[in-house]
């Protein structure tokens, strides 16, 4: 069973790095139609690249990223004891088979492990759920966009206006670095750790999918419009579309703290999920 799940993880990663989700591609197409000049040329190159990647079965970007996993593990899932090892084994397999770029470097020796595994790598975010199945989402996260992540502990007195101002200013300074048009995840509240976790999880939402809370949804729309009005554009070369979407998640905060975390995903907003049921059957669920 471990071997079977490891093979499915390798497949999942292969699909994730080769096949851009349709919602992202549609948003890029719409952006291309609304642009002109150098920004349009960038978006045309991106879309052509997305098509070539699928056709030639090659990773769309050479930075196949830190292979980040989000696992919803049912408390009665029968294979819970092997799932972690299967994920790690799947990462090793995919690195060889696709191939993926080895992206795990020892902090002290600077040696690349060569197989995308190492201390705390691949990162796996666990969430216990009711039930007997397991949902695994792979998000290959590029370094260029990851470098534009940030966390600021704001003073609660600045309020949500201050939060929005901070996000806007940060995305202007990020400019062309995270490969715009990007998707921006914002986590507000909860403390330093929770806000960053929320910002990352916000990136799992589809482009165009608004938060169910109307007030948060409104904030997402405002931020989207504000960032795009600055004219950074695709690849920071100037244009109307700098971000494809902004997703906000919130948690209750300490009265003295207003943490705001930002996680940025490049246009190659790669994510794919599978579900494993209690019989060990595997389903694609995108």
């Amino acid at each position: 069973m471990k071997e079977k799940i490891a093979n499915e993880i390798a497949n999942l990663l292969s699909k994730a790095v080769i096949d851009l989700p349709r919602d992202v591609e549609e948003a890029l197409k719409k952006a291309m139609e609304n642009e002109e000049g150098v920004a349009k040329a960038q978006l045309m190159a991106i879309l052509k690249n997305v098509e070539l990647a699928r056709k030639q079965k090659k990773p769309m970007c050479q930075d196949t990223g830190t292979l980040t996993f989000f696992v919803k593990l049912g408390v009665n899932f029968p294979y819970r004891d092997i799932i972690k090892d299967a994920i790690i084994e799947g990462v090793r397999k995919a690195t060889l088979q696709v191939p993926l770029r080895p992206n795990a470097v020892d902090v002290l020796t600077r040696k690349n492990s060569g197989d995308n595994t190492g201390r705390f790598v691949p990162p796996i975010h666990w969430e216990l759920t009711d039930g007997d199945d397991c949902i695994i989402t792979a998000m290959p996260k590029g370094g260029g966009s990851e470098n534009m992540s940030t966390l600021r502990m704001l003073k609660p007195g600045v309020g949500l206006k201050g939060v929005k101002k901070f996000v806007l200013e940060w995305m202007v300074e990020a400019a062309g670095n995270p490969c715009p048009p990007t998707v921006v995840g914002v986590g507000i509240g909860g403390g330093a750790d929770v806000s960053m976790e929320l910002a990352k999880k916000a990136l799992l939402r589809k482009v165009g999918q608004r938060h169910e809370n109307k007030e948060i949804a409104k904030m997402e729309g405002e931020l989207l419009e504000a960032i795009n009005s600055t004219g950074i554009g695709a690849m920071g070369l100037g244009g109307r579309i700098t971000v494809l979407d902004v997703h906000v998640e919130v948690a209750h905060r300490h009265p003295a703290s207003l943490p705001v975390a930002i996680a940025v995903q490049c246009w190659a907003d790669r994510r794919k999920s599978i579900r494993i049921d209690k019989e060990g059957k595997i389903w694609n669920i995108d």
Partner: peptide, 28 residues
Amino acid sequence: TGGAAVLAANAIKKVKDVFWLDELGMPE
């Protein structure tokens, strides 16, 4: 264009040489 890795790869006709591979690893 950032991320357009297949487009770039298609314009590369040949790997002529590589240096510092063992020491720095594939990406560097």
